[in-house]
Design a protein around this nucleic acid. Structure first.
Lengths: 342, 342
DNA sequence: CTGAAAGCGCTAACAA
DNA sequence: TTGTTAGCGCTTTCAG
């Protein structure tokens, strides 16, 4: 009756009706409203109609938070990836798979930052998500051990977790590099150089290692052909200089990931890019529009994302199952840049 | 004592310790644990230490859901965009801005699907998020009216909502198209064609309209120069055929969005692409590596994303403030394709 | 400085 | 078929 109630001014959010309000409005018990909201068939027609009318009249929306608290599960899984908002086909696959499993996806960017990763992961645990998929950045995930023990399902993607044992799905980096090398070798190249990410990163390490193994397997010397480290314009320029202007210059290049591939193409510029053979590891946007079009060893990102969700669901269903690592093969996509002859 | 407790088999998730467990372990009251968890300074050293020890011993993690239920706010905002997992600088900006405001971001893809958009938006409302940013797809958002009235802050990005009145941030489509047209005109082109998205989409409508206005302003006829509709290879091919092989063939092209630009480049192929002048609306990945490099009118995506969060926060703070629309200017980025002479 | 107790909005025994 | 009631795990008023 008194206007004082609504007079609290700016910042006041109107209170939303609750189930009790609906029950009162409909003249039934709380339990009946709950039944209607959850499509329980054991509700009489009369009451059903009354409740539905009350819901409509009050614009009632059930509070998902309360429901989840009571139920114990959230119906939501988290994905901590390096970048949402960048081309990320694995995340797209995760989203689709999650949706078709009736799971909501909470995605967050670790931004290549270890502290940020930790923050996100802990926050997801505190939110009691049903499970977490993570594209790991950090070098020590020990802080997740208690969470694992408490039953939080965790799956890592692209790289294994360090310090803890969790399910994992990743590409077969070694054979991918092997395919790239072999392809260039078949096209007559003998001096093949590798430029890739830092070997402090797991995939950088695996790929550089596999490349060295390829060189050895084909009986080629390693001198000046393997360049790894942070990807900067400077470093790439230096690597190219060494590789291309040696006494025995490289005639072909394998680049270790998308960022490197792009940096190398930028550095080479338009003219040189059509003279040296290149096979990139990872798909590159608009690769088909480049000149020459870019030959790559592509990860099966759709399968990786899908598998990540499947592994997660398997663990949610059976927390005690054996930890599993799935290795996914890669595909060579021939477009032109890798077929330039020596 | 009896092993029956843990014998329920697979699917059982170990029960996590709650605040009560911590209190018992530490030998203090629940209230004291709550104080410690929330960094309340009014806790004695003795108890503080005891509680911290108990938390560590039990690996206690507060349940964020319960906390939010009690508190009423979630500290989380939602972003319903067309695609996470694609290049989406606006989403990246939203994420950064949200984070630096201490807000968690829940991002979801509408996937250009009206039903999906509705599903996501309703779900976000049921989760009682603190606010929602949406890149609208559907042509009728009337179903959100009750939510707005109930005080849910909603901001639209890139396009206005239809059927309801909400804050909005978007690019100045008309001047962007004007800049593109003017630029080509300055480089001697008189027959300039436009290929863009369907005019059933808001931005498609605005941009095509602005292009027609430009043609009129410069006194050029419109015949066969404006092509809009769903972006498919076929449609683009047909549009190019009409524009380039008319009696008075177009010598320059404005493309209405990124997808169109890419489709056009693919269609033109390598040879033709260097003969016809192009200015694209929207930035394109690797635009600088194309041949010729692509001149575009770029949206200020960082500012759009940042503004979206700012508008949202403003409304969260002051639900009754006047609805605001922010229009953001665009930038012409000169790279080569737009400077080819007629 | 600490603790008992009420309640956030919902679900699910259990009773009627 | 419907209603009563006890929590889910947390914050917070109000007494000690």
């Amino acid at each position: 009756m008194s206007p004082a109630r609504s007079g609290t001014g700016a910042g006041t959010r109107p209170k939303r009706p609750t189930m009790v309000d609906v029950a009162r409005e409909a003249g039934v018990a709380l339990r009946t409203v709950s039944r209607v909201v959850n499509n329980d068939p054991t509700v009489g027609e009369k009451n059903l109609a009354k409740v539905q009318a009350a819901i409509a009249a009050l614009n009632y929306r059930p509070d998902e938070r309360a429901r989840q608290l009571r139920l114990g599960v959230t119906g939501t899984i988290g994905a901590a990836v390096r970048r949402i908002a960048e081309v990320n086909p694995e995340l797209a696959a995760i989203e689709h798979t999650a949706r078709s499993s009736g799971l909501t996806l909470l995605a967050a960017s670790t931004d290549f930052d270890e502290a940020r990763e930790r923050e996100i992961l802990i926050s997801m645990c505190r939110q009691r998500l049903d499970g977490i998929i993570v594209e790991p950045i950090g070098e020590s995930h020990g802080y997740l051990q208690p969470e694992l023990e408490a039953g939080m399902p965790v799956v890592s993607m692209d790289r294994p977790m360090s310090g803890i044992s969790a399910d994992c799905v990743m590409s077969d980096n070694a054979s991918g590099i092997g395919m790239a090398f072999h392809h260039l070798h078949q096209h007559g190249h003998r001096r093949i150089a590798y430029i890739g990410d830092s070997e402090r990163v797991f995939s950088g390490r695996e790929r550089a290692g596999a490349f060295r193994a390829s060189l050895r397997a084909y009986g080629e010397p390693l001198d000046g052909l393997v360049h790894t480290g942070e990807i900067t314009a400077q470093r790439v320029a230096a690597a190219l200089e060494t590789a291309l202007h040696a006494a025995q210059p490289a005639t072909a290049l394998v680049t270790g990931n998308m960022e490197t591939t792009i940096a190398v193409l930028r550095q080479l510029g338009r003219d040189q890019a059509s003279r040296i053979a290149i096979v990139g590891f990872d798909e590159v946007p608009l690769a088909d529009l480049l000149q020459p079009a870019l030959t790559v060893v592509a990860q099966d990102t759709a399968r990786i994302g899908r598998t990540a969700v499947e592994l997660l669901r398997a663990r949610m269903a059976e927390p005690d199952r054996a930890v599993e690592t799935v290795v996914v093969p890669l595909d060579l996509i021939v477009r032109g840049s890798g077929e330039l002859r020596a």
